[in-house]
Amino acid sequence: MRRAGHAEWTKLRTEAGNGWLVLGVVALTVAVGAAVAMTSRCDAVGCGEDPARLSLTGVMVGQVVVAIVAVLMVGNEYSSGMMKTTLAAMPRRLTVLGAKVCVLTAVMLVAGTVAVLASLLTGRIVQPDRGFTEAHGYGALSLADGPTLRAAVGSVLYLVLIGLLSLGIAMVVRSSATAIGIVLALLFIFPILAQVVADPDWQRHLQQISPMTAGLAVQSTIDLGKLPIGPWKGLGVLALWAAGALTAGGWLLRARDA
């Protein structure tokens, strides 16, 4: 398993473009978070804005780069025929999948932590000038604050889980193009559909099963009662999606010819 992990790490490290993509996760997350922090403002007590969530909005953009990295880890091997070599060298196929999961998790934990901490730091610097002050009922963003810490840890885990979901889907369809299409559709179509459905119950259920909407509930620090699903429960929904995709991918990897 250690050697399998090392092999996957070498493949990920030496593939041209992956370094840029991982940098892209951090840069896009921080840049979009900063842009939102600089445009949003709170004008009075009870403005209903969530400063932690606003600074972490960039995760919505960073996640798609995570998805690209994960999809390419599998898609490139199939398109180049490398997969045959990989499986010949490591005939225990679930070990291959496990190694990919471990390497991706480790890389995204590091990239996600950097991105999330930088986003929160930007928010902490920018937001007091945008009306998020003691007078309006907001303290500066701080990891010592329980909900903010949960939002930070949850956002990092969210990015990791999006990566694992994408990895699983790529394992199932074996093509980067199709896989990224399915991942983006899963992420974006649920929230758009939820806006259109007029019945509030349906809307709530759609939001509860949507990987993105439910997963990002973990970023909320105020008005938790108004969320369609609790913060950790929501992240759990995303974890179920990821587990489902990985199970399907692992089963097919074992069952199919390469």
Binding site: I68, G75, L184, I192
Partner: peptide
């Protein structure tokens, strides 16, 4: 393909989603 698809889909769909979800 993966990068091209993501660039186009994210460029078209994500702004719409952000603009209509009353996040901003």
């Amino acid at each position: 393909s993966a990068v091209a698809i993501t660039v186009v889909v994210v460029g078209m769909v994500l702004p719409y989603l952000l603009a209509t979800a009353s996040v901003l």
